[in-house]
Design a protein around this nucleic acid. Structure first.
Lengths: 195, 195
DNA sequence: CTTCTATCTGAACGCCTGTTCATATACGGT
DNA sequence: ACCGTATATGAACAGGCGTTCAGATAGAAG
């Protein structure tokens, strides 16, 4: 048998990416086989190769799409003049964006070591651009005197690391609402970078 | 041939753990084979089974040893009465301890998903004990009025997440000395939890 | 010098891996 | 009604996996 009823490229393609996303996030890239991914889609392993040249590209494209999504979405709301307001926007954006895509986020920094060197370089560049946009905000605030950190680069990484922590424990419907979580983190970030 | 000159249990055992540690950290548990570990030690794969019942136990014991080392080492310096001083000690201890053991730290929270459920539960309990010891410090400071956080549990996780970030970028001999890094992070933590 | 045991080898087990490809089919266009 | 193509199958490939085990050897003990 081949080509079951009503199946098409536009359907199978996304379903493969979704299956790969979930499985990579849950078990890790190296621990997931092409046959497992195919099984989740309801297809034989060979069929996957109509949609990806190989397993590595499947991972890379998931990470690339995620990072580009992150950059363009943040780019849309970037541009607040007041550094404090810009930082507040960043904190809110980062928390909400990441909580909406737990699997992508998880993969994007757990599977870096499973990328080929060229793919790694490319993803790393995208991540760097995102970090730089936060550092720019901190530098602005430093110049206006609203912020006071001893090292903007470290402060950038510290803020992002702190915010990333939220995805390891937040569960919607838990003790705190999303708004409350955002408020709590904003309080800490604001105090940490203020004189 | 068997039993090459001068080789003994007390030598091979640790060497296996060291090799596994390095390889797991660099490539990930699932991507490393028993034959690779054996190769690094200079031994055949079968010989590993004189020292571990299976691959899973090798991972588990690395993580368990690390977490117990973390808890006992911190336990030795815990017990400062003043919350601010206790927090300062915690920040310094955490940064230094983790920077001294980058591989162990990396494994201890990258490979959690490759543990069997029972092993996971056990490691998770150890991690929880460590977090609780920090939360206790924050609660003390909250009670004396020295600290002011809206949620001690979240603040605990946020502080640890922020400090953990340091191991992803710090390289000894880099732009900042260990003392400077410690100072920068302590500044941010102190401000973040203070009213 | 012999015996015993801890230690290691090397081959084998059954199973799984990513990937390729000839083959078969269902659908869209004519 | 037929054809061409997009899509999927299922078998095959070479190689790797974790693990087991009978047999070999080196060093300690007597």
């Amino acid at each position: 048998m081949a080509r079951t009823q009503g199946s098409h490229s536009d359907i199978t393609g996304p379903r493969i990416r979704e299956a790969a996303l979930g499985l990579f996030a849950r078990h890790g890239y190296a621990a997931v086989s092409m046959r497992q991914i195919a099984g989740e889609v309801g297809v034989q392993a060979g069929a996957l190769y109509n949609y990806t040249p190989d397993k590595q590209s499947l991972l890379f494209r998931l990470m690339q799409d995620h990072m580009q999504d992150l950059l363009t979405t943040y780019g849309d709301l970037d541009g607040f003049d007041d550094p404090q307001e810009a930082l507040r926007q960043f904190v809110g954006f980062h928390i909400r964006f990441h909580l909406q895509r737990p699997d992508e986020v998880f993969i994007a920094y757990m599977e870096l070591r499973n990328l080929t060197p060229e793919n790694f370089t490319e993803i790393e560049a995208l991540r760097r651009r995102y970090e730089d946009s936060l550092e720019a905000v901190l530098c602005n605030g430093q110049n206006t005197g609203q912020f006071s950190v001893s090292d903007t680069k470290i402060a950038t990484l510290a803020v992002i690391a702190m915010l990333n922590g939220v995805i390891t424990w937040y569960r919607s419907g838990g003790r705190l609402s999303l708004d409350e979580v955002e408020q709590v983190y904003w309080d800490m970030v604001r105090k940490a970078v203020t004189a």
